[in-house]
Computed example of a mutant assay.
Amino acid sequence: MATPEEHAAHNAEAEQRILSDVKEHGFHVALFNGDGYSPSFAYTIGLYKTYGYPELICFGFGLDLLHSVLWEGKRLLDKQPKPDLGVGYPDFLQDFDMRFVIVDPTRYQDYFGYAAWFYDSWDFPALQTV
């Protein structure tokens, strides 16, 4: 188990990377490995601040695919900033079809910790890619 000092150093490093990526790319993709109980997942940080888009979250793939899904989600939002939540997007990424689902803000605390740090608030929109 990490010591409080190790945990603080990890957070400081992660926060610096988030700020750097948002400055350079407009957003950051936070990636989290599954732990045998919870699946791997990833979410964006900065889409709302930089572009006015909802943050995106995705679950259950390998980290490389999660990263690609969120980048493609951002590209889709570039073309359609207000996606139609009632339709899917065929061939979203190679042979994957995808749709967006609104994330219930009561669930943000379970997954969006670094986004809340970035915004200094839980007040940002989020969509899950499924």
Score class of each variant (00 low, 15 high):
residue 71 W to V: 10
residue 56 L to M: 05
residue 63 L to I: 09
residue 38 S to V: 11
residue 57 I to V: 13
residue 63 L to R: 09
residue 36 G to Q: 09
residue 39 P to E: 12
residue 52 G to L: 02
residue 70 L to D: 05
residue 48 Y to Q: 09
residue 42 A to Y: 07
residue 52 G to H: 02
residue 71 W to P: 01
residue 46 G to R: 02
residue 35 D to A: 11
residue 44 T to V: 10
residue 44 T to C: 11
residue 56 L to T: 05
residue 54 P to Y: 01
residue 36 G to D: 11
residue 72 E to F: 07
residue 39 P to L: 06
residue 63 L to N: 09
residue 41 F to C: 07
residue 51 Y to A: 05
residue 74 K to M: 13
residue 71 W to E: 13
residue 54 P to V: 02
residue 68 S to P: 01
residue 65 L to P: 08
residue 65 L to K: 15
residue 41 F to N: 08
residue 70 L to W: 01
residue 67 H to I: 05
residue 57 I to N: 05
residue 59 F to N: 06
residue 49 K to Y: 14
residue 38 S to I: 14
residue 46 G to F: 03
residue 51 Y to F: 10
residue 66 L to I: 14
residue 36 G to M: 11
residue 38 S to F: 13
residue 49 K to L: 14
residue 47 L to H: 03
residue 51 Y to Q: 05
residue 50 T to S: 07
residue 47 L to N: 10
residue 69 V to G: 06
residue 67 H to Y: 14
residue 47 L to C: 08
residue 48 Y to L: 03
residue 41 F to P: 07
residue 72 E to D: 07
residue 60 G to L: 13
residue 55 E to S: 01
residue 46 G to H: 01
residue 34 G to Q: 11
residue 42 A to D: 08
residue 34 G to H: 15
residue 52 G to I: 00
residue 42 A to T: 09
residue 56 L to H: 03
residue 69 V to H: 13
residue 57 I to S: 06
residue 49 K to D: 15
residue 60 G to K: 12
residue 72 E to P: 03
residue 38 S to D: 14
residue 60 G to C: 12
residue 38 S to P: 07
residue 65 L to C: 13
residue 56 L to G: 04
residue 67 H to T: 11
residue 46 G to A: 02
residue 65 L to T: 15
residue 65 L to Y: 14
residue 50 T to I: 01
